Amino acid sequence: MRALVRNPDTADLPSGVEVVRGDLSVPDTLNEGLEGVEAVFLVWPALPISFAPAVLGVLKQHAPRIVYLSSMGIREGLAQQADPINDFHANIERLIEQSGLAWTFLRVSGFATNTLGWAQQIRSDGVVRWPYGTAARSLIHEQDIATVAVRVLTSDRHNGAKYVLTGPQALTQVEQVHAISQAIGRPLRYEEISPEIVRQQMLTQMPPAMVDGMLNAWAGFVTEPEPVSRTVEEIMGRPAHTYSEWAIDHASAFRV
Rank of each mutant, 00 (worst) to 15 (best):
R123H: 05
D9W: 04
E224L: 09
G220D: 11
N114H: 14
P207V: 04
R137M: 15
G133V: 08
V37Y: 06
M202G: 03
T223A: 11
W218S: 00
A52S: 10
A3Q: 12
R137E: 13
N216L: 13
V222Y: 01
H89N: 11
A209C: 00
L101C: 10
N86Q: 14
S124M: 09
L34K: 08
L34N: 01
D28M: 09
I145C: 00
E175Q: 15
S138K: 04
A52Y: 02
P27S: 12
V256C: 08
S252W: 13
N91E: 14
V198A: 13
V67A: 10
L188H: 04
L42D: 01
I180C: 03
A161T: 12
G110K: 00
E233I: 12
S252T: 15
E93N: 10
P45S: 07
F41E: 00
E97R: 14
S194V: 09
S71M: 12
D125T: 04
N31Y: 14
R186T: 03
L116R: 13
V20Q: 04
E226Y: 03
T242S: 14
S50P: 03
P168T: 07
N86P: 06
Q169D: 14
A79R: 06
V26R: 15
P45N: 08
D87N: 15
V148R: 02
S124C: 02
D9K: 12
A170S: 15
V55D: 05
A39G: 11
Q201A: 14
D28R: 15
E245F: 03
N159D: 13
N7T: 15
S50L: 06
E196R: 11
I145Q: 01
T10F: 13
V58K: 09
L30M: 14
G220W: 05
A247P: 02
I184S: 00
W218C: 03
P8D: 07
W44I: 05
I235W: 05
V58T: 13
S71G: 15
P84I: 08
I197D: 15
T134A: 12
A46W: 07
I197C: 08
S155E: 05
T104V: 09
A217F: 14
I180K: 00
R189G: 05
S70I: 02
Q200M: 13
S229E: 07
L78M: 12
F254E: 04
T29D: 07
G36R: 09
S25M: 07
T172L: 06
E226N: 05
P48M: 04
R21L: 00
H241R: 15
G36Q: 07
F111Q: 01
P14M: 11
Q200T: 14
P227D: 02
W246D: 02
I74C: 03
Q143W: 10
A79P: 02
E38H: 14
L171I: 08
T166G: 00
R75G: 12
I66D: 08
G57I: 06
R65T: 12
E18D: 13
V256P: 10
R238P: 02
T29P: 04
V67N: 06
S71C: 13
W218R: 01
Q176I: 13
T104C: 11
M202H: 09
V198L: 15
A136Q: 12
V43R: 11
T29L: 09
T134D: 14
E18W: 02
P131V: 07
N114G: 10
Y190S: 02
G110T: 08
P168G: 07
R123W: 05
D212R: 04
T113I: 12
E191I: 07
G100F: 09
